[in-house]
């Protein structure tokens, strides 16, 4: 993954991990790789990984089992909720971009339906 140096790396990593969770690439209840392994995988500092995982935990998407490591929450409703939030953001981005091209929201919807 290529990080953009203009934004905090831990936030970009957090977003990436959130996408992996809501898309089911890391399953509900599944164990997350260790800090060190994630640092190597994403080629970032272990402290950056630590910070991203802390944020994920604050969001409730993962939890720590004292000696076993970190796991994705088994609360599927919560995962679904974040998934919808992400989807909403994508839709808003779509409308924003289409608006800047001069489309009204209605025209943008029709465009998606194939009514070009």
């Amino acid at each position: 993954m290529n990080f953009n140096n203009d934004r905090p790396i831990y936030i970009q990593l957090l977003e990436q991990l959130q996408v992996l969770i809501v898309s089911g690439k890391i399953n509900s209840g599944e164990r997350i790789s260790s800090v060190r392994d994630l640092a190597l995988e994403y080629k970032v500092n272990p402290n950056t990984v630590q910070k991203a995982l802390q944020e994920l935990e604050n969001l409730g998407l993962i939890y720590t089992e004292r000696t076993n490591g970190k796991f994705v929450t088994s609360d599927k409703k919560l995962i679904e909720k974040y998934k919808k939030e992400f989807a909403k953001e994508q839709v808003n981005n779509y409308f924003r971009n289409m608006n800047s091209l001069g489309f009204t929201n209605e025209e943008a919807i029709n465009y998606l339906k194939g009514d070009k």
Binding site: N5, I11, T48
Partner: peptide, 15 residues
Amino acid sequence: DTDTLREKENSSIDE
């Protein structure tokens, strides 16, 4: 701290 500086200045450390 690197990320704090990026956030504050809205740009890369290089910039």
